[in-house]
Design a protein around this nucleic acid. Structure first.
Lengths: 194, 194
DNA sequence: TTGTTAAACGGGGTGGTCCTCCATATCGTA
DNA sequence: TACGATATGGAGGACCACCCCGTTTAACAA
């Protein structure tokens, strides 16, 4: 969940408003994951336990909601990277692998969301998110590399491209997530030093 | 307009059915060009002067209608290439340029149609259309090359990529068509021998 | 704690969409 | 011309986005 207000420069939101906003984003994430980016907003409001008017007040357009969901997922992913990084006991290579699986799950859950967003999203959004993910991943990769757990030539960019490609390739499949999981496992084994 | 039935293996369509089908495809082309691929089917039927039930009988899904529009546009483009090729008086270089402008217009008019189709279109459709356009363009290019009107190294594939890139780059722009026209003019001048 | 006020809420209405049913009109043919 | 097969389109059901506005609630000051 995002921790700062949607509009950080305004006066702070009322507590109930923020609560509802978070509930809406969470519900939208779930609904979009199972119905795709064209899901009914009414259904999102219903599942969030919120009136449809409230949803429309917080997100004046479907696009706005989609962007919020996307941003939220990216933030969750970055937070996960930080968590993994903060644990000094963890095996660096395993931590990286775990995170990549999370990224893949994110990419698969987004389904058409990415391309729907790209149709006419705020161009800065994509840029920002890309940077956030790259930076978060880089830290994990650096530690894994320092521990000698990855082959030379492996970069964050390449890892992310790999994950993205797998997600894209399995997107249209009946059981995409399972197939993606399998491919990713293979790919990660290829990345590891033996 | 397409000349053969949508289902060439069935018994021939009744004349009024074919007439309505053509009206629907034409109307859909216009509506999609101005409202995008998510345009209202009701509006398409209205503009075609046809009941909505008729539209739904001919095209059981939005996807089916989109595919028909796309196919129709490609066919129009190929027919245009044939026309240009058939005129022995024409300047070969100019004919090629004219056709490329038509292709660009087609690409711009399609807007999100391409990506909407690619989401889950019959994969064979894209392949077939690509081949059709490439073949049609190749003939025009060959004649232009024989007349010494194009530089060496120019291939249909490259020309089409050029046009596609220009369309894509100007798609999001406010006045995309005008900008695309300008860029294309520059690009074509670059292709010509001086 | 209590009172005041601005902010947020959500039920319900409006207008639009997709899609289907079926009585009617039209085509192709004998 | 007459007939059967085929195509048509208006009406209606289910659903949806979006908005109006009376009601509730959080925030803050006394």
């Amino acid at each position: 969940m995002s921790k700062d207000a949607a509009t950080p420069l305004r006066r702070p939101m009322r507590a109930d408003a923020r609560r509802n906003l978070d509930k809406i984003v969470a519900a939208a994430g779930a609904v979009i994951a199972e119905r795709g980016a064209e899901a009914s907003l009414e259904e999102v409001a219903r599942r969030a336990g919120v009136g449809s008017a409230t949803l429309h007040r917080h997100f004046p357009s479907r696009q706005a909601l989609l962007e919020a969901v996307f941003k939220d997922r990216v933030e969750t992913l970055c937070a996960k990277a930080d968590d993994l990084l903060a644990d000094p006991e963890a095996d660096p290579g395993q931590a990286l692998a775990t995170w990549l699986h999370a990224v893949a799950a994110h990419a698969v859950a987004n389904r058409g969301l990415g391309s729907s967003l790209m149709r006419d999203a705020d161009p800065a959004l994509g840029e920002t998110c890309h940077d956030m993910i790259t930076t978060a991943g880089d830290a994990l990769l650096a530690r894994a590399r320092a521990a000698g757990a990855v082959r030379p030539g492996v970069t964050v960019t390449r890892l992310l491209k790999l994950v993205g490609a797998i997600a894209l390739a399995t997107e249209r499949d009946a059981d995409g997530p399972a197939e993606a999981e399998l491919l990713l496992r293979l790919a990660i084994d290829g990345v590891r030093t033996r």
